[in-house]
Every structure is written in structure tokens, then in C-alpha cells.
Amino acid sequence: MSTVSAYLTVRGIDVDVIYKDIKNLHIGVYPPLGRVRVAAPERLDDEQVRLAVIQRLPWIKRQREQLKAAPRQTEREMVTGESHYVWGLRKRLKVVERPGHTHFEIDGERLVLYTPRDTAAEKRRAYLDKWYRDQLRQAIPELITKWEQALDVIVPKWSIRRMKTKWGSCNRETRHLWFNVELAKKHPDCLEYIVVHEMTHYFERNHGERFTKLMDKHLPDWRSRREQLNGSPLAQEEWPGGA
């Protein structure tokens, strides 16, 4: 079965379109980010798909709101044995209770938390969030420098924040880029994809044909990176013995 991909923006909502040898059009809204995917018959064109999505917008928005409101993960207790992801790799948490300042270290397959015995779980989670942000702050500058040179642009400012429905965003007026803290849990290729994606918005606001051509030119494997990024739930960790 042949397939053709398109990338549309419909009233502010990004839509992935797959044209297939099928009879009917199907619209799905998928966790964790509320990604909208359309499987469309090959006889339809982008404008016909756009109209079909517009007709279903109330339903799509309800589905996205439900995903946005849903709990993202079982809250971490921050105890030895839990699993956490670091740059796409699953790490077992080991807690070492000892006097001194709280900090994290990578030790092979383990993520080690050094912390005083009386540190509450809430504070441990806050330290982990800060550690993830620090990981991104170390990784992002090199990527931005690389792609500033490749795209011949300047990124005047970028920040990290927790986002429920996006991996990144770009303010075209201020040229300020934002990156989701959850990217520190994903493979480094995924972070680079988001960096390039957001910087490409300097040239094109929407996810239309021009945007797709620019991505194809500068990062030819961006689709596989996007699938890798969206292939695992946002902020969802595994407990020992299962998901």
C-alpha cells in the first residue's frame, strides 16, 4: 500500500496526513501530546483534508483537552528501584542517604541520588526536575551553535519549561525559543530535531509545504526522529516489573 505524507496546520493545530489506498478518511488524536493524525484516501487533496479537519474541530479539541487534563504519570516516590529515563536510556534510581547537599550522578546503568535522610519526596522530585534542566542547558547551546551556522540565523534567546502539549515553541516576533524539559529524557536525536524544527519557524510560521521542504533539506531524517520522539508517553516512567 503506497503512502504519501503531508504536514498541515489547521487553525493553529498541527496535523499529520497520510494519504493511503483506502476508501474513507479517518481522524485520530493521540497521546501524549494530542497529536492529530489523518489517514486520507489518495483521491483527496490537502484542501479537502483541511475542510474535513475543520468540520471535526470541536471533537478534536475535546479530545486534546481530555489528554491535557489527564495525569501524566504515577507520581515518583524517588526511592531506590524506580526507573527514570535519561537521554533515551532507562536508568534505575539508587538513593544514597547521607549528609550534605542533594545531587544526582550517572553511574553506569544507575541514576544515583545523594541526599540527606530527611529529604521529602517532593523536594527530591524538584531536585530531579532541576537536574533534567541542567542536562538540557549543557546540551542545547552546542546544537544551537551548530544550526545557527547551518541555517545562517541567530537565536537571541532560548528557555526551558514544562509543557503539556508541545515539545517546543517559537515566538517569531521575539525569536525566543522554548524547549520542553521532558526532552532530557529522550534520545539526543530527538532534541536536535526539536531545535531544528523550532529554528525553521524563523523562516516559515506554519507547517505547510515550504516548512516541510526546509526540514527535508536541512534534516532529511526528521520524520523518523519525530516518530521516535512521539513513540513514548510524555512524562511516563516505568516501575520495576512493568509499565
Rank of each mutant, 00 (worst) to 15 (best):
S232L: 08
Y127S: 10
R62G: 03
I54M: 12
L143I: 00
Y132I: 01
E77N: 09
E238W: 13
G208E: 01
R137S: 11
V53T: 01
R50V: 05
T212H: 11
Q63A: 09
R226K: 14
A70E: 14
W158R: 11
K185A: 13
Q149L: 10
M1W: 06
T119R: 15
R223G: 04
T74C: 04
R56I: 00
K146D: 13
K68L: 09
T200C: 15
P31Y: 01
L151T: 06
R161Q: 15
R98A: 13
I27G: 05
H218R: 10
T145S: 15
D216P: 01
S159G: 11
E209R: 15
I106G: 04
V49N: 03
L8K: 04
K20E: 15
T74N: 10
K217C: 06
R175I: 00
W178Q: 12
K213G: 10
E142D: 14
V86C: 04
M215Y: 04
I144S: 09
R223A: 08
W147A: 12
R210F: 10
W59D: 12
A121I: 02
H101N: 13
M163C: 03
K186I: 00
Q48P: 05
A52Q: 12
R172G: 11
R43C: 10
H201R: 08
A40P: 11
G241K: 04
L177Y: 01
V4P: 00
T74H: 14
D216A: 06
G34P: 04
Q48G: 11
W87C: 06
K61F: 00
A243E: 14
M199F: 07
A243I: 08
M78L: 05
P58M: 07
R162M: 08
R64H: 06
L93W: 05
D189Q: 12
T174C: 01
F179W: 01
P141F: 02
W239E: 14
R11S: 14
L8D: 03
A243P: 06
A139D: 14
G88E: 01
H197F: 04
W222S: 08
L177R: 01
D118Y: 07
K130H: 14
W59P: 12
K186L: 00
Y85Q: 12
R76F: 01
E77M: 07
G242Q: 05
R162G: 09
H197M: 03
